[in-house]
Amino acid sequence: MAGILLSHTEKVYITHGVKNEYRSDGRSNIDYRPMELETDVVSHASGSARLRLANTDILVGVKTEIDVPKPDKPGLGKIEFFVDCSANATPEFEGRGGEQLANSISNIMLRAYQSAQAFNLKQLCIFEGKQCWKLYIDILILECGGNLCDAVSLAVKAALFNTRIPFVKAALMDGGNVDLQLSDDPFDSKWLDVGSAPLLVTLCRIGEKCVVDPTAEEESCSLVSLIVGVTGNPKYYNDYEDEEELPAFEAKCSVISMHGPGSVSPQNLRDAINQGIIAAVCLDEALGKTLFRERRDTEQFKRHSYGFLK
């Protein structure tokens, strides 16, 4: 994010490489750099995750609270995103510098999770019209190395996968007030259904083609980028014994947004969206398998926890 100075020749080199699907580190246009993900790093939160993607480091914590549902949506729970760009990440975030970026990221996350097909808020309802769960998702940007939206969406999905909602044993109406009985056992909880939660993919337009997961040098060659949010496939996030009982899955876009001072041609837009969906589907599969493997390791007490040591 600090100013990268590239000569004109270097920019031409990058642009020509992208045209031929070659990038300077050998990846193709829709390859991501290697990432490290770990869940359950914050013990006080109901769910948490930490993701490292090259130079970007994101920490997400999920807290659950009981709240009154909205009057025009009595059967749904609530979800709220808060992004904190601390000055640790980059010197530009000092004071209120990071506020605009934080607002735009939390706004796009809110739009991505708005549809019930992306994240079903019905699973957060306790007593229709009176009580529901409210999820507070706090996203901390520890280090900013570009490509924030992708990393944030991956970390949020991992944290939600890791979130436990306490089991409500009984809900009694006591003269207008609701009396809840939660079980005393902290492990008597249910997991959230996040299989279809969306993943955001940022595509930077360089020349006529778009690249996924740009490095800082590639970002300085591009004037406009497109963010596509694609819903996930629940197949990878649940233990389904019989594959045929699932309805056929179709990846859907839950949010599309554009960034940057440039504009795109309609053909560019179409290609970019197609590319984004392909990249997101691969990413979703990889994430699902990783998270599932981690959960199984935890259940069998085989997991080695790194926390913040690495």
Binding site: R111, Q114, S115, Q117, A118, L226, T231, E250, A251, K252, C253, S254, V255, I256, S257, M258, S263, V264, S265, P266, L269, R270, I273, N274, I277
Partner: peptide, 23 residues
Amino acid sequence: LMQIADFRQIGSLDIECILKVTD
């Protein structure tokens, strides 16, 4: 210039629908 300055979508749509709607 026949270029798209801003494109924003919210909801849940599949790719054919989006391409049709762009036109």
